[in-house]
Design a protein around this nucleic acid. Sequence first.
DNA 1: TTTAATTAGGATATTTTTATCCGATATATT
DNA 2: AATATATCGGATAAAAATATCCTAATTAAA
Lengths: 144, 144
Amino acid sequence: MFSKACEYGIKASIFIAINSYKGKLVSPKEIAKEIDSPQAFTAKILQDLVRHNIINSIKGAYGGFEIRKEELASIKLSQIVNAIDGDNIYNGCGLGLNNCSEEHPCPVHEKFKSIRDNLKYMLENTNLEELALDIKSGASFLKV
Amino acid sequence: MFSKACEYGIKASIFIAINSYKGKLVSPKEIAKEIDSPQAFTAKILQDLVRHNIINSIKGAYGGFEIRKEELASIKLSQIVNAIDGDNIYNGCGLGLNNCSEEHPCPVHEKFKSIRDNLKYMLENTNLEELALDIKSGASFLKV
DNA sequence: TTTAATTAGGATATTTTTATCCGATATATT
DNA sequence: AATATATCGGATAAAAATATCCTAATTAAA
């Protein structure tokens, strides 16, 4: 469904969100340990998220990554997915046709429509704050 | 969503299905042209589908690929997807956790559940015959 | 039985994705 | 100003996915 990079990006964002709640900055090292991902590769993804203005980086000593508290509830999963994988997963054709549309549909166009739309709706209506709260309460987990 | 190989596999199967209706065998060359895919790579995928008993090959002169007419309606998209990409797309965790479950869910487990289940249901309840009939009637298209 | 047509399959190449390494740059503290 | 601690970013490596090429094996027809 998503690329490895995107899976790491989502999990990293959630972990950063949890810590930003407490006002704590986190490093790629801590993140990679917590989400069980390769550290250097994860760092690249973090840079990508910074460039897309999804997370914030504080450079230099005592630096790290954070997400501004007031933005936690407004950052949607779709932003992270789109930043890393693009929008093909929820906007593209299921069989890879470039010009698939209602007027010129691929064989699975109708069958995929509701699935794709549900996915899109879900990604656009799930925010980081709710995901972070579930981790904090022990309702969900980032690894193992 | 699916790999390129899987997209080609689905489209190839549909094209073979259409021709098998008429009792006509088709070659990798014809298939690749019709679904707009690289020929040799497509041929590999066809071999894979043969090994999985989804399509049938007739070797030697005047040979080609076919699907037994009586099986057209019973071959499901899920079989093709599973043969080429495995079942991860509709059975695996959205964030790649190995042991994601109701008892130990990833952060998006609940949110993904209905999407994954709908996808699974759709793939398991869509057969090659209906897809082939839509192409034949001009209701859907394999390329461009 | 020879020939031509066709799938099977191994070897290899290319591209993309995933992953690692290291020096440059930035910055808070001493 | 010097130092220690971080992120940034370029170079490179490794693995996986995608794609190509060539020969072997098979088989219908002449």
